[in-house]
Design a protein around this nucleic acid. Sequence first.
DNA 1: CTGTTAGCGCATTCAC
DNA 2: GTGAATGCGCTAACAG
Lengths: 345, 345
Amino acid sequence: MKKKTTIYDIAEKLGLTAATVSRALNNNTKISLNTRKLVLETALEMNYEQNKLALALKSGKSYNVGVIVPRIDSNFFSSVIRGIEEELYPKGYHVIICQTHNQENIENEKINSLVNVQVDGILMSISNANLEENKGFNKLLKNKKTPLVFFDRKKDIKGISSVTIDDFKGGYDATKHLLDQGCNRIAHLSNDRNFEIFRNRYLGYKQALSDNGIEFDESLVIETQSNVLDGRRAARLLLDMETPPDAIFSSSDFAALGAIQEIKESGINIPEDICVVGFSNEPFTRFMELTTITTVDQFPLEMGRTAAQVFLEEVSNTDETKTTKNVVLTPQLIIRKSSLKHKEG
Amino acid sequence: MKKKTTIYDIAEKLGLTAATVSRALNNNTKISLNTRKLVLETALEMNYEQNKLALALKSGKSYNVGVIVPRIDSNFFSSVIRGIEEELYPKGYHVIICQTHNQENIENEKINSLVNVQVDGILMSISNANLEENKGFNKLLKNKKTPLVFFDRKKDIKGISSVTIDDFKGGYDATKHLLDQGCNRIAHLSNDRNFEIFRNRYLGYKQALSDNGIEFDESLVIETQSNVLDGRRAARLLLDMETPPDAIFSSSDFAALGAIQEIKESGINIPEDICVVGFSNEPFTRFMELTTITTVDQFPLEMGRTAAQVFLEEVSNTDETKTTKNVVLTPQLIIRKSSLKHKEG
DNA sequence: CTGTTAGCGCATTCAC
DNA sequence: GTGAATGCGCTAACAG
């Protein structure tokens, strides 16, 4: 375990002072060009590396930001993260990625951990709809030392910025599209509507029905997790109804996939008998062998970039008057085979 | 921007000394139970949080480890990461995830960044087959301050531990299975064989051919990136040959998927005309509507856990005699429809 | 242009 | 049992 070389080492070697070395390393113009060059050279030669920890301790900035997501193995979240990285990396920030696996207690711990390692900010998509009940989160909220930005799965909390898509519109457009296909008994695979995104998709769905004179039927709404198995289970329930639906709008691509599997295995045709629309534009929706899946694109890359920008604004905003920003991006319906009854001209 | 409360604040409030507070907080038995309790209480009350940065600066340990992977949006890597997290989190470590997007320069930068933030170790799957040419990597290697563990995409470097699967066996088993299906003109979608994993899969493929009296035909080996488009491209080349192959062993599930798409669109049947085997057991291989894909499971969760364990051993191993460990897990062939010509009894 | 001094927050050695 | 002093590595204010 060799020790790392510090500015003192190189100061000593050069008969200088640590302060001078520090300044030279930072290209301070007050230092003569000669010594600057000299210092830089010997620093290189001695394999000097700045100790960011000391720097952080001194400056109070770690140049690390934490990103908390439910999972990283979905294209949506990994794309958002990529967007965040793209925006933050050039500014010298590093991204610490944490996944909660949708468990509230892990989310709590991660929040605490990130605060402990002195991240300069936290960008998160919540896993707990009742986040305010968290001790760690509340502490974070109260002292307002660490900027916080929600993306996608946000919570409407005063003073906290967020970047989302217009989930209401996403749900509305998806449902309207199904209506346009001639469907009039449209089921909805929802998810926990304590989360705004799922509530809004649901509300968009309801509104589209209402705007088109279709009566809302609560029995057609099934709460489903974002995974294949749950999609299957939900589809089974729907198929077993006396009057099964002629369309399904799922708030998750994964659940939509499961539903499609279950429906097909029951010998029912998609889209002829039942149309299906998902949500998120996961890559597999495009790669289906038979029935590519209609879905709603959430522009995750842009979402990530925007969230990062909002963070950058907040962190550079020194005055006390914090401006909360709630950016809403517009989703886009992508029509594919799973809902296209009528061949296109 | 309120300031955080430090041990000095609570010392002052209690008419004590920072040293005492520090000891009390650490449950030092030298401190009277009373003051210990008192300190703990007021710490709680004042919302005290230990500054990990100062601690790290003092102790030289950050309790952060870096994980560098080519990408996080594949089930394989995100599962490995999950395994690492599961093992390290209980020990108090945090995982900083970095993705290189397969770009060597980004890999360089990430290595440097992680070293700069004083991670206690780096677990990585390389994106650059000639890693030794990297300045940053070499520095890391030379001073041996930061334990390094390779997983999956490793490089055989003296003194560096690694956790991999037996890729040779993976390639061998996959090929043998295709031979057992009656295929005898088996193509191979390889990837850059400067990487050991791809070279070994390739060598396993060759050995299986040779062991079964099939002559190796170089024109049947196509270098392919791990993505759908490249898989399509490779399949196109194979289909356009005078004598197309009757099987494809792909070193990547993503490429296998692309190949399957291209083959089917050409009106050729899988597995009747061409059998296909992938590698990694990505979830979509199981979810295919018509042709679930035969593939090789790499046990990513176990790989991650093992890599983490190796790291923990290294970091706790204080003496100079570093023991290099090269763990090799055994892969498992998972046979599905894309390669099963004969119905199972 | 460069040196001196001090402090970021903590743990630890040496006193008493 | 507790206090005083010191150092981890760096930067910034103040001198000169």
